[in-house]
Design a protein around this nucleic acid. Structure first.
Lengths: 212, 212
DNA sequence: TGTACATCAGTGAACGCGCGTTCACTGATGTAC
DNA sequence: TGTACATCAGTGAACGCGCGTTCACTGATGTAC
C-alpha cells in the first residue's frame, strides 16, 4: 500500500444508524479485493482508509479480521450461487441446463477473479473455522452442478448413474478452466465462452451413453 | 512461525566450499514450503533458521528473496517436467500416453501440493519477472500435454485437428482436478487415480472422432 | 423550558510482532615472501 | 620455517515498514426530570 495519506474522512453516522459503517466496511473490502492487489491488499488499515474511518472503528462491527473476511466470503458464495442458479432458470433441456451452469460458473470466476481466488484457490487461513467454509462451498459451486447433473442422470443422458461422480468431472473442468483463466491470463484461450463450450461439449459427449 | 529459538548452528563451510550454503538454502526452502504453512511459511528468517545460519548469509548467495524463490520455482518446473516426460517413456499408443501424462501431472500436484500451488495457483509476486515465469510454464505443465496431444491428433484420434485446442481442454481437466484435490481435500474424490481416469476417459471419449 | 446524564459512534496513540534488508565487523585459512 | 597479508565465509545488531489489535478518550445527540 505504501505511504498512504490519511484520505478523506467520512461523516459520522447519525444516532441509530451505526450499522451504516458496517455495510460500508463490507463494501470497501470487496472493492479492495477487486482492485489490483487481491487478497494481499486487504488489510484492516487499508479498509479503514478506503472507508474513511480509523482502524479501531472496524472492531466496533467485527470481532476480528477473520470474521470480517468470513462475512465477505459468505456473501460472495451467495452471489455466485444466485448467478449460477439464475442461469438455469427456465431451461428445460437438462443438457442445455448443464452447459448454462458451466458458462455461468466460469463467467463468475472470470468477472470476479479475486473473489474466486479467495473462495476456491487459496488455503483458508487457519483461524477461519474450516467447518463453515466447507458447508458453504458444499452449497455453492458444486451444489448447482450437482443438482443439474442429477437432472441429466435422471433423464438417462449419461452412461453413469452416479450424479456425484458426474458432477465431480464437470466441476474439475469448469474449475480448471476458471482458475487457469485467472492465473494464466496470457494464455491463448481464444474467446472465453467458446473455450467453455469446447470443454463442456467434449466432457458431456464423453459422459454420454455409448448407444448414440 | 512464532517465538522460534535460535536453533542449532551449522558448521561453517571450508574454504572453496562456499557454494555448499547455497544448496542448503535451496533445500531448506523446499522443505519449508512442503511443511505445513506453505509459501506463507517461507521467510528469509525461517530459511536461515532451518539452515542454521543467520539471515544476512542468504544474501551472500542470492540478491533477493525474489531471486531465491524464482530459483526454487525453476527447479520445481524442471522436476515436474521430468516426471511427466518420464511417464510417457516407451508408451507407443498415443491415447495411452495421454492418460499417462494426465496421471503423472495430477500425481505431481497431489504429492507436492505447496509447490504446485506456487507454480500454478498463486499470483506471481510483482517483483518476479513475469516473462521468465511465462517461458517456464510454457515449457512445463502444458508442454507435455501439448506434445502428446500432437501425437494423438496426428494419429487421427480426435475430431479436432488443432493440438493446442485439444491440449487446452486436457489442461483444464487435469489442472482442475489437481487444484481441487489440493484446496478441497475433504471432498469425496474417491481414489485419486480412479478420479483422474474417469475425467480423462470422459474427455478423451468426448474429443474422439464421432465415427467410432 | 432548562439542564444533568446516559448512550452512541466513533478517534488518537500506542503495543508488540515479523518482515526484508543493510552495514560494519570477525575469525579462520590459505598464500607470498 | 616464520610471519604479514589477502581472502573467504560468514555474524550481530540494527534500520524502517506494515501489520492486527487494544486502550483510554471524546464529542455529539437524544432522554428524563
Amino acid at each position: 500500500m505504501s505511504r498512504t495519506a490519511p484520505g478523506p474522512r467520512r461523516e459520522r453516522a447519525r444516532r441509530g444508524e451505526g450499522d451504516r459503517l458496517r455495510a460500508e466496511i463490507l463494501e470497501a473490502t470487496q472493492t479492495l479485493l477487486e482492485s489490483g492487489g487481491g487478497a494481499h491488499a486487504v488489510s484492516i488499515r487499508a479498509i479503514a482508509q478506503a472507508v474513511g474511518c480509523t482502524p479501531p472503528s472496524i472492531y466496533l462491527h467485527f470481532t476480528d479480521k477473520a470474521q470480517l473476511l468470513l462475512e465477505v466470503c459468505r456473501s460472495n458464495f451467495e452471489r455466485m450461487a444466485a448467478e449460477t442458479s439464475r442461469a438455469v432458470d427456465g431451461i428445460e433441456d437438462p443438457a442445455e441446463a448443464l452447459k448454462a451452469v458451466g458458462r455461468a460458473y466460469v463467467r463468475f470466476g472470470a468477472e470476479h477473479p479475486e473473489q474466486y481466488r479467495v473462495l476456491f484457490m487459496e488455503r483458508p487461513p487457519e483461524d477461519i473455522v474450516p467447518m463453515v467454509l466447507t458447508q458453504l462451498d458444499d452449497v455453492t459451486g458444486f451444489a448447482q452442478l450437482l443438482s443439474t447433473s442429477r437432472r441429466c442422470v435422471a433423464a438417462g443422458l449419461f452412461a453413469s448413474d452416479d450424479p456425484v461422480a458426474v458432477a465431480c468431472v464437470l466441476w474439475a473442468v469448469v474449475h480448471g478452466l476458471t482458475s487457469l483463466l485467472i492465473t494464466k491470463p496470457s494464455f491463448p484461450w481464444t474467446e472465453r465462452d467458446e473455450a467453455v463450450d469446447r470443454c463442456l461439449d467434449a466432457v458431456c459427449r464423453g459422459l454420454r451413453t455409448p448407444v448414440a
